[in-house]
Every structure is written in structure tokens, then in C-alpha cells.
Design a binder for these strands. Structure first.
Lengths: 198, 198
DNA sequence: CACGCGATGACAGGCACTGACATCACGTAC
DNA sequence: GTACGTGATGTCAGTGCCTGTCATCGCGTG
């Protein structure tokens, strides 16, 4: 138990590379093996050949180790910037979110496994929600920079995130395994129908 | 410090009434006086004339003392049930959320103060977000019980929550202090415009 | 009057997280 | 090539959140 399972030989190299990645890997393994609650930060660190203190130098808290990898937000805001300026706000948001979908379709099983973990732990749901909310705010800010005025910018971003959430859930549960993009488009079409009816 | 500031005389009554309310009150005071982080659960309990252990019998965690009071969800689901069955999904959600607004308009300063606290603490934002998400799920379930099929029910609920969030934020910052209902209607109108344009 | 109930207290303990200081390979300057 | 600074890590002590468990005791009930 005293460091016998360290992957890298510390006699030659002061620090094994990719400490952050090793911590994420170890965390995923342990959460899968014995569950989130039953896993200690100390255990994660030890499996990665590090100490608890070092874990907290890489991640702000225990939950963050599950969310640090996805730089979804930066990528999407960049995507939005590349969309033609004259695109309507909601259409721009929709196009941006489609880019996110491409990240999902390739790793369906991995995403499903991750979501199962999150669904079983309210504290993880909270973290997921604040990540999505932050993404929504970032999209709104990006829209504002394109000249969209304020009620519309936030509204488009938030409505887009609403569709995204529903589409994501349906994509997860879809037995036919249709592409995420398909669910997204269904969602935006459904929203259009709903608002037209009201 | 050994119980000298207890509000009720324990010699006559075994337990002072409304322990939960006293805890909420004490928490609000202390959070206002010295901030959320600088306030200890033990301090809250002591100001309420109770022990830390009893605090956790009334609230699942430290944050919950700020959210336990509002039974917003139950009220709103009940409101939705009273709306005519033939109302369009989004219109029904809009009408339901207007009922929530009436709770706000009377206590503008109180709500503002509370939101300032939440805005300053990510952990409180997380809790707020999961409450809103739960409310959204409850609205979707209520819509389903009225016979709305599944993509539409969640979509209407989530879109409604999106508008609610934007309206709430604008209501908070509104220098003219217009009614919450006004901001809500502006929001739904704005959403309609956005979806029509796309 | 005995008994069970329910809200509370007392106590011990685990785990998440933080601050402060020490260590030590590596790169760089001189 | 020696001295020095840097950066990732280790060590240690400590605080606060939260839980399990058992004891207490006024109150209502039979």
C-alpha cells in the first residue's frame, strides 16, 4: 500500500508526467468500483501515486475531478464566433450546440456511464447544473458581442440551453441511437411549434 | 455563552416552539452580519438556543437553511393543476410562473438581499440551480399528467424556466421596479419573436 | 402509573479542504 | 560548473461540515 503500485519509476524522474490525468483516471476507476461516496480523495491520490494535498492542487474539490476534463465552454464560444454575423440568434446558438453534439456521438457509452454516476448523486448534479449555467452565460455574452441586445441575448442562450438539456436527455435514453444532432433539431422544431401555438 | 442568550425560558417549557424558524432566522442574521463563509453551523445553532446536531436534524446541510422556507414547487404544481385543461402547454406554464411572481413583488428587498448572498457564493448558486431544475421537472411531470406528450412537456417546462430565469434577473435589476409579471410577459413575447425569426 | 414517543443533547469520529513550511530535481545565469 | 531560482510535490496541523449512536426527559395515552 505504500506506493507499491506507482506506475512510474520515481528513481529516474522526479515527477511522473500528467499528474492531473492520472488523478482523473484513478477517480473514474474507483468511482466505478466502489461508488462515489465510498471513495476517498486520499484513495484517489494514492492510486495515482500522489498525496491528498496534491489532489487539491489540481482540482478545487472532489467533484471537480469529474468535470475538469471537458473544456466544453471555451470550445463552444469559439464555435459561435465563427458563425456568420447575420445568422439569427437562436439559429446561431443551435449551430453552436450542434458542435457539442459531435463530441458526444463518438463516446456514447462513456457519456452514459458518466451520466449514470451524476444522476445517482445530487451533489454531482449540482455541479453539472452550474457548469451548464455558466455555459449559458458565456453564450449570452458571446451573443451580446455580436450586437444582440440584452433581453434577446440571454433569452436565446437560455432557451438554447433548455433545448440542449431536453435533447441530451432524449439522446441518452434513445434506444435507436440516433445522432445527437437529430435530437437537437427535433428540440428546436418542437420549441418553435410550442411558441407558435401559445 | 452557555445558553445565556436563549430567547425562551427552558425551565417552564421543555422545548421552545418553532426550532426550525429560529434556526432560519439566526442563520439569516449571522450571514448578514459576518458573511456566509465566516458563519459556523455551531454559531447558528447557538444563537437559536440549540446545538449543532439539532441543526442537522432540521436541515440536510448548511446551505439548505436558506432554501427550506420556500415551498415554491408544491404551490406552483398546485397552481398548474387549476389551469383549464385546454390551455396550450407554454401558456399554462407561463400562467403558473406568474403566480410565483406575486410572491416576489411584495418582498422585493428581501429577495434582493437573498440573491446578493447567493450571487456571492457558488455553492449557494448550485443549490439554487438544482431547486429550479427540480421545479422544472415537476412542471414537466404535471404537464404530462394533463396529456401532453413527452418531448413537448419537458420542452415547455424547460423553456418556461429559461424565461423565468431571465425575467427574474431583469426584475432584480430593474430600476423602474416594474412588476415581475411584466418581465415574465416580456420574456415570453421575446421568446416567441426569437423562435419565429429562426 | 407505567409506558412509549418525539425532540433534543452529548460525544466520538470521518472526511473534505486549507495554510504553512520543507524538499528537491531541473533550468538558467554568471 | 557552481549558485540560485522555480515549480511540483510532500508533510503536518488544523478547522468545519456532517453522521451514528446513545442518553435524556416532558408529554400524551392506555
Amino acid at each position: 500500500m505504500t506506493g507499491t503500485d506507482i506506475t512510474y519509476d520515481l528513481r529516474m524522474v522526479r515527477w511522473a508526467p500528467n499528474a492531473r490525468g492520472r488523478l482523473e483516471q484513478a477517480a473514474l476507476e474507483l468511482f466505478g468500483e466502489r461508488g462515489y461516496d465510498a471513495t476517498t480523495v486520499k484513495e484517489i491520490a494514492e492510486r495515482a501515486g500522489l498525496t491528498e494535498r496534491t489532489f487539491f492542487r489540481h482540482f478545487a474539490d472532489k467533484r471537480e475531478v469529474l468535470f475538469g476534463g471537458t473544456t466544453l465552454q471555451d470550445g463552444l464560444v469559439g464555435t459561435l464566433a465563427e458563425i456568420p454575423e447575420d445568422t439569427a440568434p437562436l439559429a446561431a446558438v443551435a449551430a453552436t450546440l450542434e458542435a457539442a453534439g459531435e463530441l458526444f456521438d463518438g463516446r456514447r457509452d462513456l457519456v452514459r456511464q458518466r451520466q449514470a454516476l451524476i444522476a445517482a448523486h445530487p451533489e454531482l448534479q449540482e455541479r453539472e447544473l452550474i457548469k451548464l449555467a455558466t455555459l449559458g452565460s458565456a453564450l449570452a455574452a458571446a451573443l451580446r458581442e455580436r450586437g444582440i441586445a440584452e433581453p434577446a441575448a440571454s433569452l436565446a442562450a437560455e432557451a438554447g440551453m433548455a433545448v440542449f438539456k431536453v435533447a441530451f436527455e432524449r439522446w441518452l435514453e434513445d434506444a435507436e441511437e440516433q445522432a445527437f444532432t437529430q435530437h437537437l433539431r427535433d428540440g428546436f422544431a418542437g420549441l418553435k411549434t410550442l411558441t407558435a401555438g401559445a
